[in-house]
Amino acid sequence: MTANVLAHVLDRPVVSTLTGRQKHLAVQRGGAIRMHPDFGLFAGTLDDSPESLADLGALVREMGTVGLVEPTTPSPPPGTRIVSSAPCLQMVAERVAPAWDVDFDMLPLGDADAAEMLALATLTKPGPFFSRTHQLGDFIGVRVDGQLVAMAGQRMRPDGYTEASGVCVHPDHRGKGYAARLLREVTATILATGEKAFLHSYADNATAIGLYESLGYRGRAEVMFTILAAA
């Protein structure tokens, strides 16, 4: 069995997360591991042996579609197929832009908001979001006339890092600075703990990358986000 030696915890953030601080969220089958499907679809293998790849294939067939965040696009394990594979820019922030005044309140979100959070994420598709994704970390949002119109929060937590994620704005409420200010607040909260913040953006999304850079994020590496489903 050949171990995957990581030069950095962010090289394979899913495996680093599910074998570290968030291992309580993991479902493991032999050499394969995935996040519990109520929380997310992220998965990986503990090494690059044929046995572990076979375990990943079995896990996909048992529990459904998974998403891999890896340095390269892997070969599909037995019994699976690649649905999509896209390059993403992994970005890290060690400092954040200064706060600025806004004319809206940023409110903490929790279980009572779960249905609205899932609906907003389903509409706007900021990335994989499931019934309990909001429990992965602190989320904040903006309400207009009682409706949740924007949110951002935290997701994966490899040692020393916390991922900013779930940044989305209802199409009818874009252009008001919600995404930037919410992400700035999430990032500042992470940095205040002594950790570094990181996130992922599709590599061809120049608008999003520009926003993240304006807040203090810098590109670290290109990774591949690959969706695997049962064949």
Rank of each mutant, 00 (worst) to 15 (best):
M1W: 08
N4M: 14
V9N: 02
R21G: 13
L25I: 04
Q28C: 14
Q28G: 07
R29E: 12
G31A: 13
A32T: 04
D38T: 09
A43I: 05
T45D: 04
L46V: 10
D47A: 11
A58N: 07
M63R: 15
T72L: 11
T72G: 05
S75K: 13
P76M: 08
P78F: 06
G79M: 07
T80Q: 01
R81W: 06
Q90N: 03
A99T: 12
V102N: 04
D103L: 10
F104S: 02
P108C: 05
P108V: 03
A119Y: 12
A121I: 03
T122L: 06
L136D: 01
G137H: 04
F139M: 08
G141K: 03
P158R: 08
G160I: 14
E163Q: 14
V167H: 00
P171Q: 09
H173C: 02
Y178R: 08
R181M: 11
L182M: 14
L183C: 09
L183N: 01
E185F: 01
V186M: 00
T193I: 11
G194P: 10
E195R: 09
K196D: 05
F198I: 02
A206V: 15
T226S: 04
T226G: 03
T226D: 01
I227T: 15
I227N: 06
L228Q: 01
A230N: 09
